[in-house]
Write a protein that binds this DNA or RNA. Structure first.
Length: 905
DNA sequence: AATGTAACTTAGGATTCTTGTT
DNA sequence: AACAAGAATCCTAAGTTACATT
């Protein structure tokens, strides 16, 4: 698919299999909670239990499961259109003040409660149902499948291409009418949606340079007493130079000999110490080599030139490099993208202005640019590289490793630590995701003058590997970065940090999970409180409670405001009117682009009060483009959370719910299964979490093809099975009676397939014979013997063809002569084996299908407490390396050290 | 309160490496 | 031995959060 994206996120990946049309929102399977329609009933709700109860129900419903109660049945989906209508009539009323609590709604239009289920509609097969996080208490219950909200992810996955939604409206709201919300009477005036929270959109221009200098700490390069500019060679010894004066953490004995020191270092168990927080001193001595700049641009060979309107252009290296950036991408989707092209061309033209082609041609249109020659040159280079001998490759690799060696590690308080992204980002074209307004923009080449380094006062100042002086050198020991610069495209800061396996990262990572575990202790109360607040008279509180409900139940991100020059994506607090649609009685349809422009599309059954609230938040003067939660910001939300539990913020819920869900789902692990079965259960739990967090991956372009291949493989197995069966029947016609199950034909075995399959088999057989013949001859020749005659080969081929004619006959007659030595027992046994193989292959295919658009890695790396995995591995006796790759194990040494099989999150 | 800055975590896609097949 | 599929790693974009400044 070319870069063209369907206008409406909806259809997107057509190439891909996903059959279901999104237009038909799949049904939610939800169960129907008993909706309470009026607030009165709500009061009930206040009781703690209630909420749980509901949740349980949700969980239960696992997919369409068998459970009997009617509410287990999927409730039909209501097309938006229709519900619109439905709504219409009731709408206004809703906002009514209701008695006791501000709760809106008048009971009048009582929603039809659950009964609706009756009409069940089949759920689309691809529907995914996220597992919904629940509180402990319900554990037992949740052993049951949880279904809960079924998402209609239609093909879900899709990365929907965003529909540009003008955000113009958003901020620019009709501020004035702020007041008007009319009588929605909800209550105090603050109930009225406030029109816009922000008025004038202020373009924030990133003026780079200028006041750039960050904290005063930065010293200008010159004055830094970098007397000894020597890069630190090999870290070691030197750190000690200045004994950490008052080191907070005991620096390990520095006197050791190098070798021992290394060991020591390996053994440093940072997790046995206190984690340090924000703003605290993180180090006493700090040595490193900052960043490694990429090699300078090497001009292309003289004969490689782009063309403009047919004429080859001789470009100076500066502009040639930029042309090359695009040239390398002409076959990618980016090169077809209008915005990308526009931005690229603007920068390219500017570059040409300064570094024009020798030919004195004015480049005016990107369409007339032909980068093919460059592209082909790059392809050739790639080929060349691939074709190099092992030795050549090795030599290159060695040279590269040598160059990088000094940057791989740094020394913190005398300990060697691995550096993460030490390579300065090379120049190129900005690949923003989704509808990023800046995509295609030229990202400049960095030089030392762009980079500020942070390093120990007494550490030698590293010498850049290209000419130039650092922009600044600072010695801030309350931060953990080695280098930092501002990128020109968006004006964003970039940092060089230590690797994921370093103690700094490990400490904060562990602290993150500990914080999430702490939430376990508070979550019941928090849930109870926000459930209560759903009915608050204070609009801001009600919005906050509703948002929190989403964050907790749907694992939404906080959702900060974004700027005009960024992709239009949202999170919870920044949801807008058009992102949620109501479908009575209690379904909310979410459809928006989240982080990385990944589409979040789910139909969710919510508490009646939540449903009412959304209706209220979308009430009258509000329209498309307005914030759903106009009284809420992430700051407000986090402030509130912080008051409920120190350090609590919105993101903690994602971590908590992810880990909690994972642990819960792992309970489905078969105790006596094989290792493979256990791992499958592990992966299933992992998948549940990924779905909860909406972690998607794009479906590979060749997925379709590979799927067909797998299907054909299964059909081939079925074909074999059919042959076995037919033999069996020839042997003993009565078997059909005895084993009616065997009398049944394999599915998918139509004539057309058989013919095609047999043809393929024939070709393969011929090919094999040919190869064998060639090989034999080579061998014979080597041994000095006479080669076989070509006639032999031809004869053999003819034989094969004859054999296959047999197959054709069999196909027509549907009779197969038993092969020699075939007996009834043997055949039955073979059929049984075949059945197993078919079953296995089918399961595999299904698994592949389920994972085709779900990314498991992100949750494993960032959300699931690694100790859960370690404990599980120990408990079920599965080798950890089957669950964690090498880098993950390096990232989580602390988990292996502290979790035994009884550990729980 | 709105903006802006700083520092750090989280994220999917591209690239490279490994492994299983033919 | 060649290749292709999948897993792992690399890369850097895109979030969150706290705090400073206007």
């Amino acid at each position: 698919m070319s870069g063209i994206t369907p206008a409406n996120g909806a259809t997107d990946s057509m190439a891909v299999v996903a059959p279901n049309l999104e237009s038909t929102p799949s049904i939610i399977a939800a169960h129907a909670p008993q909706v309470k329609d009026d607030d009165e009933s709500m009061s009930e709700d206040d009781k703690p239990l209630m909420k749980k109860q509901q949740r349980q129900q949700n969980n239960k419903r696992v997919g369409g499961g068998t459970s009997s109660s009617e509410d287990e049945k999927p409730l039909n989906k209501r097309p938006r259109a229709s519900n619109g209508a439905a709504n219409k009539k009731r709408r206004v009323v809703d906002s009514d003040s209701d008695e006791s609590d501000a709760g809106p709604s008048v009971k009048k239009e009582a929603e039809p409660t659950p009964k609706t289920n009756g009409t069940s509609k089949p759920r689309s097969s691809t529907t995914r149902k996220p597992v919904i996080p629940s509180s402990d208490s319900e554990l037992s219950e949740d052993e049951k499948p949880l279904a809960k909200r079924a998402t209609a992810n239609g093909n879900g996955t899709a990365k929907a291409k965003p529909k540009p939604n003008t955000k113009a409206a958003k901020k620019a709201p009709s501020s004035d009418e702020d007041e008007s919300p009319s009588e929605d009477s909800e209550s105090s005036e603050d109930e009225k949606p406030l029109a816009k929270k922000k008025a004038p959109a202020k373009p924030r221009q990133s003026t780079s340079s200028a006041k750039a200098t960050p904290k005063s700490k930065v010293k200008a390069e010159p004055e830094s007493e970098d007397d000894d500019d020597v890069p630190l060679a090999k870290g070691k010894a030197k750190g000690q130079a200045k004994p950490a004066a008052k080191d907070k953490k005991p620096v390990i004995k520095k006197e050791k000999k190098v070798k021992e020191e290394e060991d020591e270092e390996d053994k440093y168990k940072w997790w046995e110490q206190e984690a340090l927080g924000d703003g605290e001193v993180k180090w006493t001595t700090f040595e490193h080599n900052a960043v490694l700049f990429p090699p300078p641009y090497v001009p292309l060979p003289k004969n490689v030139k782009m063309k403009y309107d047919g004429v080859a252009l001789t470009l100076p290296p500066e502009s040639e490099e930029v042309a090359g950036f695009f040239g390398a991408m002409i076959e990618t989707d980016h090169a077809q993208d209008a915005k990308f092209r526009e931005n690229f061309f603007k920068d390219f033209k500017a570059m040409l202005e300064q570094y024009p082609p020798k030919e004195n041609v004015k480049v005016k249109s990107l369409d007339k640019c032909d980068f093919k020659p460059m592209f082909e040159h790059f392809e050739r280079e790639k080929e060349k590289k691939k074709a190099m001998t092992k030795e050549e490759k090795k030599a290159i690799k060695e040279a590269k490793d040598k160059m990088e060696a000094p940057y791989l590690f740094c020394v913190v308080d005398g300990r060697k630590e691995k550096v993460g992204n030490f390579r300065a980002e090379p120049p190129g074209l900005f690949r923003g995701r989704g509808e990023h307004p800046k995509k295609g923009t030229l990202k400049h080449r960095l030089c030392p003058e762009d980079i500020i380094i942070n390093i120990g006062k007494d550490a030698p100042v590293p010498v850049p590997n290209i000419p130039g002086k650092w922009k600044g050198i600072q010695h801030d020991n309350t931060v953990t970065w080695l280098a930092h610069w501002k990128e020109n495209v968006n004006g964003n800061a970039k940092y060089v940090f230590l690797s994921a396996g370093s103690s700094w990262k490990g400490q904060s990572d562990r602290a993150k999970f500990e914080k999430a575990r702490e939430l376990i202790k508070h979550v019941d109360k928090i849930r109870k409180d926000y459930t209560e607040d759903l009915k608050s008279k204070v609009m801001a509180d009600r919005q906050r409670a509703t948002a929190l409900y989403f964050i907790d139940r749907l694992a939404l991100r906080a959702g900060n405001e974004k700027g005009e020059d960024e992709a239009d994506t949202v999170g919870c607090c920044s949801l807008r009117y058009e992102h949620v649609t109501l479908s009575p009685p209690n379904t909310v349809v979410f459809d928006f682009l989240g982080k990385d422009s990944m589409r979040f599309f789910q139909e969710v059954q919510v508490d009646a009060q939540v449903f009412k609230n959304i209706k209220l938040f979308k009430a009258e003067p509000k329209k498309k483009g307005d914030d759903l939660f106009d009284r809420l910001t992430t700051t407000l939300l986090n402030k509130h959370l912080n008051s409920m539990m120190p350090g609590l913020t919105a993101k903690v819920f994602r971590t908590y719910n992810a880990s909690w869900t994972f642990q819960k789902q792992l309970k489905h692990t078969p105790k006596n299964g094989t290792v493979a079965e256990k791992i499958a259960a592990y992966n299933t739990a992992n998948r549940d979490v990924a779905i909860l967090c909406n972690h998607q991956k794009s479906v590979s372009k060749t997925w379709d093809v590979s799927k067909t291949k797998h299907e054909d493989k299964i059909r081939a197995l079925k074909y074999q099975r059919m042959k076995l069966r037919l033999q069996l029947f020839s042997l003993d016609p009565k078997i059909k009676k005895k084993r009616p199950d065997l009398a049944e034909d394999e599915s998918d075995m139509d004539e057309e397939f058989c013919e095609r399959h047999e043809k393929e088999l024939l070709e393969k057989a011929l090919d094999t014979a040919q190869k064998k013949f060639d090989k034999d001859n080579v061998k014979l020749e080597e041994e000095g013997e006479k080669k076989k005659d070509k006639k032999d080969l031809e004869e053999r081929l003819k034989e094969i063809k004859e054999e296959f004619k047999e197959l054709k006959k069999e196909r027509k007659s549907r009779k197969v002569e038993p092969r020699r030595a075939a007996t009834e027992e043997k055949l039955l046994e073979q059929i049984q084996k075949m059945d197993e193989r078919i079953a296995t292959a089918k399961v595999q295919l299904e698994d592949r299908d389920k994972l085709k658009d779900v990314a498991l890695g992100t949750s494993k790396i960032n959300y699931i407490d690694p100790r859960i995995t370690v404990a599980w591995a120990k408990k079920y006796d599965v080798p950890l390396e089957k669950l964690f790759s090498k880098t993950l194990r390096e990232k989580f040494p602390w988990a292996e050290a502290e979790a035994d099989k009884g550990w729980i999150f």
